[in-house]
Design a protein around this nucleic acid. Structure first.
Length: 489
RNA sequence: GGUCCUGUGGCCGAGUGGCUAGGCUCAGCUCUGCAAAAGCUGCUACAGCGGUUCGAAUCCGCUCGGGACCUCCA
């Protein structure tokens, strides 16, 4: 198996990946809160973990990938006192909370599908695990690290910090956190300013609430992940992931909960993806600078000159390492779209490449470089650089400027299959070639054949007319050594 | 204000001590009836100042700029 190195937020270092129970790997990623459409920033995180999931699988691991759906408990506004985000939206829309959940869950899955993300092994919901969350809260109280005040259960951070490193994930100093935490209204019940809720008492008008030993209420945000990761992956598993913005609060609290619950820190490797930015600023709903996937596909956005296909966008994201910020712009998207199309054209060219007795290129070494790139903390930009080297070789061979044996041609096909399609999850756009596609293929062969004859007769007026009219129709003719080919622009 | 990250050529974006990333754009050449496509070549950068070193984009310090988190957030 490949030697894989992963950057671990816990140690701030790249470490060799060792699975607890190889070849099995448990991976938990914090999923979306389904109270509105997912924006592109969210998509980037899930896409990054999709590649991680795909690569782990590709090199032979059996991965159980759990990504939750947060459909309750997530608060609007200030910590622990606001309304449930989903309830709030439901009231505005005159809908049942679960209608909101259903609508945006379906929408989320549709978008993930368009971006060609593999579905996780398990996609559990917070509302489906109320009992488990209550049990964890109860156990933490028994262990003396949480307390119940008027129907709300708080985690005692300062008490926990006496015996454990509360800030292990971020390396911050507890004193500084205590100093810098603001006073918030409605939290008089808390003993410490860093304490957070495991279970929250519901007001009568609160739409989503469940009975508990502390009265009617709903779960705090962080506890759902503790409950679901423990249930499906065990008290300790391999990888826990999420966006970088979750590390200081959500993940820090999650680790504290797990330790308080069972004495064990849940994951060995914590992975965090960086933010998608617009003009240097984090894309987020609250800043109002977010893009919806559909706006991107249609081009219906003031910052876009045109629409972009899901695969062009996916390629765009792959060009940047997951731990770097990625700035989103029309210009960068156009460049990515072009590069992506060229890469995909290369695959077509590869299908009818003629072999030679010997190769002038070392394809095996190229394949090795691709693995090395991915083994180095999933470095897709470097992988892409190598794939463009492969593309150059393919095009050169097509121009008869380099030679390839049949074995090397097959190896190039394997590289494409493994890295472009399986690992990066890209696919050709015109999938689903139906009857119309086949018919077009035949028509184009006929038209290009006629043009070739016209050229042979030096009837350039006719051949140019065919080329120009096709161009107007969005079909580009490319003359090559072996005759003409075409693509739809 | 505190903590942390970051500043690469026209644009996007890898790279952490010596050996040209890559993509897009632009210019030239080859091929071509012409064009496109493709290939080749060129534009060879590392915010500024100082230091460490035989040698720094890469390490250290300072200055300036950008960002994240500290409050819901992928």
């Amino acid at each position: 198996m490949e030697r894989l190195f992963i950057y671990n937020t816990l140690t701030r270092n790249k470490e060799e990946f060792k699975a607890i129970n190889a070849p099995h790997v448990g991976m938990y990623v914090c999923g979306p809160t389904v109270y509105s459409d997912v924006h592109l920033g969210n998509c980037r995180t899930f896409m990054s973990f999709d590649v991680i999931y795909r690569y782990l699988t590709h090199i032979g691991y059996k991965v159980r990938y759990v990504r939750n759906i947060t459909d309750a408990g997530h608060l609007e506004g200030d910590a622990d006192v606001g309304e449930d985000k989903i309830s709030k939206k439901a009231k505005l829309s005159q809908l049942e909370p679960m209608e909101i959940v259903q609508k945006y869950t379906v929408g989320f899955r549709d978008v993930m599908n368009l971006f060609n993300l593999l579905p996780p092994s398990i996609e559990p919901t917070a509302t489906g695990h109320i009992i488990e969350q209550q049990q964890i809260a109860k156990k933490i109280i028994e262990n003396g690290l949480a307390y119940d005040v008027n129907g709300t259960v708080y985690f005692d951070v300062e008490k926990f910090a006496k015996s454990h490193n509360y800030t292990a994930l971020t390396g911050r100093k507890l004193d500084e956190l205590l100093e810098n935490t603001r006073d918030l209204d409605g939290q008089e019940d808390k003993r410490g300013r860093l304490d957070f809720a495991l279970w929250i008492k519901a007001k009568p008008e609160h739409l989503m609430q469940w009975p508990s030993q502390w009265g009617q209420g709903f779960p705090g945000w962080h506890i759902e992940c503790s409950a679901m990761s423990t249930k499906y992956l065990g008290e300790q598993f391999d990888i826990h992931g999420g966006g970088m913005d979750l590390a200081p609060t959500h993940h820090t609290n999650e680790i504290a909960q797990n330790i308080a619950y069972c004495g064990k820190s849940p994951a060995n490797y914590w992975m965090h993806t960086n933010m998608l930015t617009v003009k240097g600023q984090k894309m987020s709903k609250s800043l109002g600078n977010s893009f919806l996937p559909m706006e991107l596909f249609s081009g219906d956005h003031e910052l876009l000159s045109k629409g972009y296909s899901p695969m062009a966008v996916r390629f765009f994201m792959m060009q940047t390492h997951y731990r770097s910020t990625l700035d989103f712009s029309d210009e960068a998207l156009q460049a990515a779209e072009k590069a992506f199309n060229r890469l995909m054209e290369g695959y077509k060219t590869l299908q009818h490449l003629q072999s030679s007795a010997s190769s002038s290129e070392d394809i095996k070494a190229l394949e090795r470089k691709c693995y090395d790139a991915m083994n180095d903390d999933f470095n897709t930009p470097v992988l892409i650089a190598h794939l463009f080297e492969a593309l150059r070789i393919i095009n050169s061979a097509n121009d008869k400027k380099t030679t390839l044996t049949q074995v090397d041609i097959e190896l190039l096909k394997t590289i494409y299959k493994h890295f472009v399609f399986d690992v990066m999850g890209l696919k050709t756009e015109e999938e689903g070639n139906n009857k119309a596609g086949t018919a077009l293929e035949k028509v184009m062969n006929l038209v290009l054949d006629m043009r070739t004859k016209a050229k042979a007769n030096k009837d350039f007026a006719t051949s140019d007319q065919i080329r120009d009219k096709l161009s107007e129709a969005g079909i580009q003719v490319k003359d090559g050594k072996e005759g003409a080919t075409w693509t739809i622009n």
